[in-house]
Write a protein that binds this DNA or RNA. Structure first.
Lengths: 341, 341
DNA sequence: AAATCTGTTGCACGCGCGTGCAAATGGCGT
DNA sequence: ACGCCATTTGCACGCGCGTGCAACAGATTT
């Protein structure tokens, strides 16, 4: 494919220079016309834009980024695609980022040990920030990446982290889980069981710890719990089956508090269809995230909704700030009571 | 933030030149060391890599792309995040693309009229190809974009399209829907109802047309059908409720054939919980895509699975080909019978 | 009418790397 | 030790745009 530089027409890779010639201005004026708050007279801008239009000129963000050392690109690292909430988060994030002029590089963290490569991938594109939505925190990996200063910002979204090199934008898990615990208690449940997700290094003060300690503080006993190796309904089914499968009715919990909806959904399926128990009469269930499926008559899940839009707006604010302060922030969401508890 | 060029240490933006100096070779040798099939001696490569390692050098893909006119970047345009199958597709695509060295720009097509802007967005990053997974085909928009030659390739994934400027990688809808129709017929259903998704311009020979005509060819009558404005369970619920809500039992269809699982899932919920009918005894349901939820005991959906991995592999092949032939290809998937039909 | 100011335009240099070819290097046989 | 060949290395130029400042024009003042 031969490139005919300088030629007009759709074949040519038309640059700002071409537009400049066509509009009778300098190349810099052309680029100015495309910049938001550039000092340029309306007349010139119109003239330039018209020429650009007819030539089919589109500014090259690679070159812009190279020259300005700012890419307006973020990498979104995702690893647990089995969790339906990821779809919601991706929609919200890409929507709001795009509205503010940020593009998103979607990086699939293929497996547990791939985070390092994924980060490397992102850094090769010189993204301005990396956003982690998933469970792949290996503090060492993050620390190494951060130490190499390959990103200006490393943001953990919708998940708390105590990692000091990291910006965490999340819901206040302690407040949220406390609210759930109190709700469960107020509804009269007395034998809770906590279904947790995979344990990551950074997760102190997690939802599980909060629930257990809150419950213990009230009743003196620490509830049972189990851990699912991934936020995946299928895997939750397996764990719940294993744990509650052949337990006599007398020893069954009366409420299953799940770390999030992905787990709760799997749990509901097992409880109802494998154990043959009623929800909430025999066992109640709570989730977290308020994924779309929670609304389904099959689940009607009592859950907790994170203020995703607000969080994403704040994320943009963080991205666009050049300060060096501590950006960590915890939002409060709201409990969404439904029939499952 | 001052940049101290030339300085070593994590603060500096270390370039190939720095590594070259450190390793005692030329800059070009450094870049060669990072290129896959470059002619370079193992010893030199090791030396370079070691220096790169200690300096923390990461090649800059922006500059590489700028110089080579090849970005190894594709834009993934998505507009219907309500469809859970999108999550599956995104996982598979990003996984396989990344394995082959391609990065993915995720672009949320915000609303119906935004496709043009989304394409513009992609073209500013000089992506090598645009992949559409969604319903946003406005033939005019696509034609305009294609005419401007802003992308080397415009690929419509998992959806057939007759658009000549476009590469369609999809399942063979005619074969698939024929198989479903025959299955439904063989199981003895006689009063089918087709639940279709939004009508797009490019969708001739769609699943709906195939099913209807196949049925008519056998029984002489064209089944009923209805259209849901989006692939969204919630909207499917509304349409099914409206259409079947207060219909006497005698006039109820005995099978609801849905264009995909997103619709089928909404339909199942309504049929079972609003209409109080049994599945499949009163009404059977079929879907398309085999999303993870289909496995749930709440759905046990008879559906059709696309060979996504195979399709994605072919996609990579298309991306890496420099030929100019017709790349359109239809794959055959497999019917997944479950209890819903 | 000259001087001043404000807003607008032009430009040298650099961002980091790829291409394609020329030069250099090393290994081998005689 | 010489020459041949295969492999390895070096380099001039360009990719398209941003930065920061200097030059300029038109509007305003004295």
């Amino acid at each position: 494919m031969t490139q005919h530089r300088g030629k007009t027409g759709p074949d040519a890779n038309v640059t700002a220079d071409d537009v400049a010639t066509a509009a009778g201005v300098s190349r810099w004026t052309v680029n100015r016309a495309f910049k938001k708050d550039a000092s340029i007279s309306p007349r010139t801008r119109d003239k330039v834009m018209e020429a650009a239009q007819t030539l089919g000129y589109v500014p090259d963000l690679r070159a812009a980024s190279l020259a300005s050392d700012r890419s307006n690109l973020v990498a979104l690292l995702v690893d647990d695609f089995a969790n339906p909430h990821k779809l919601v988060m991706m929609e919200r994030l890409t929507r709001i980022l795009r509205k503010h002029g940020w593009d998103t590089l979607l990086v699939n963290t293929l497996d547990r040990d791939d985070t390092g490569h994924a980060l490397l991938n992102a850094s090769q594109r010189r993204v301005d920030a990396v956003i982690l939505i998933g469970i792949q925190f290996d503090d060492e990996t993050l620390a190494a990446a951060q130490h190499a200063r390959r990103f200006r910002k490393l943001i953990i979204f919708a998940r708390t982290s105590q990692n000091p090199d990291t910006i965490s934008i999340a819901v206040d898990d302690v407040a949220a889980m406390t609210e759930i615990a109190d709700y469960v208690r107020a509804r009269g449940y007395r034998r809770p069981f906590f279904l947790a997700g995979p344990r990551t290094v950074s997760a102190h003060l997690s939802r599980k710890e909060t629930f257990l300690s809150r419950w213990k503080a009230h009743f003196g006993t620490e509830p049972e719990s189990a851990e699912v190796p991934a936020y995946d309904p299928i895997q939750a089914e397996a764990v719940v089956t294993a744990v509650l499968g052949n337990r006599p009715r007398s020893e069954m919990p009366d409420v299953l508090v799940c770390e999030n909806d992905a787990l709760a959904i799997g749990a509901v399926d097992v409880i109802r269809h494998k154990l043959g128990l009623r929800i909430p009469e025999d066992i109640a269930v709570t989730g977290f995230d308020d994924v779309p499926q929670c609304r389904s008559p099959n689940y009607r899940l009592t859950t907790y909704r994170q203020p995703l839009t607000e969080m994403a707006d704040y994320l943009v604010e963080v991205l666009e700030s050049s300060e060096e302060r501590d950006f960590d922030r915890a939002f409060t969401g709201c409990l969404v009571p439904r029939e499952s508890a």
